[in-house]
Amino acid sequence: MNKLQNMTVAMVLSGLLMAVGNVIGYQVDWYSSLLGVLVIIVIGLIGMAVSQLPGLNKLPMVFWISIVAIIISLPSFPGSAWVIQITKKVQFLAVTTPILAYAGLSLGKDIELFKKLSWKIVPVTLAVMTGTFLFAAIIAQFVLKWEGAI
């Protein structure tokens, strides 16, 4: 299997797991959950195809997938209302749970490496994460007020 086929299989598989979570956690019916996930997967695959075009592959795939999703959801794009209505049935949190489950299952290999580090890295990492989140949020708060958006 080549890389793109592998990615397609992984997308479909993780999409199915998202549908399962959507049914269990948010009481959405199977039909709406599977249809919503299917539309999300198709958009992801279109983005993946776009990112492979010559000249466009200089930017990361995540960028092109974002751009394709944004364009499809623009009010002026034909059928955007339908896409939004269908995909709205898939809850954001249901999408995140399988992703973080995969992340969790890969942590074991980092635990061994982590044991070799000094404890000092823990407060430093927490400060790094807090700093990037809080400073951006504080600047955003001031500028949003100034722009009259909030």
Binding site: V62, A69, P75, F77, L105
Partner: peptide
């Protein structure tokens, strides 16, 4: 097996990127 899980993570993440991208248009 952990490396396989780590490999699927960024691909599954693409679906989250789609979900979030679809909120930007409206």
């Amino acid at each position: 097996q952990m490396e396989v899980a780590a490999g699927i993570l960024p691909i599954a993440m693409m679906l989250l990127i789609v979900k979030i991208g679809l909120d930007i248009g409206p």
